[in-house]
């Protein structure tokens, strides 16, 4: 299996916990959103306080857990929203 680097944009408390607005996560090629979550938990333990609450967006839309990820997509990770 080929290993991929997925760049993940972080926002709000996720950005502050990781102390970065862009992180690189190592995953197997053909990974899913659910597997990205596992990789995030293992490789970015700073996000643990938000564990189970983080939302994943792919190409500016909320992503389903089974959605496949590629290196060319824009991936973002953030806590529940609180605008307004």
């Amino acid at each position: 299996m080929t290993v991929q680097q997925i760049q993940v944009r972080l926002f709000a408390r996720a950005r502050e916990l990781a102390n970065s607005d862009l992180i690189s996560v190592q995953v197997q090629e053909g990974t899913t959103v659910a597997r990205l979550r596992q990789a995030l938990a293992e490789q970015v333990p700073e996000l643990q306080p938000l564990s189970g609450q983080l939302l994943i967006a792919v190409d500016n839309a909320y992503a389903g857990e089974d959605q496949l990820l590629t290196e060319t997509q824009e991936v973002a990770c953030f806590p529940p929203v609180s605008g307004g």
């Binding site: 926002f11 709000a12 408390r13 502050e16 938000l50 609450q53 967006a57 909320y62 973002a76 953030f78 806590p79 529940p80 929203v81 609180s82 605008g83 307004g84």
Partner: peptide, 22 residues
């Protein structure tokens, strides 16, 4: 659904992100 977040700046000097589901 709109990805915007707010952080409280409390009068006692502390700050706190508002995350309604947490």
């Amino acid at each position: 659904i709109v990805p915007i977040w707010k952080k409280e700046n409390w009068a006692d000097g502390t700050t706190e992100w508002v995350h309604p589901e947490i």
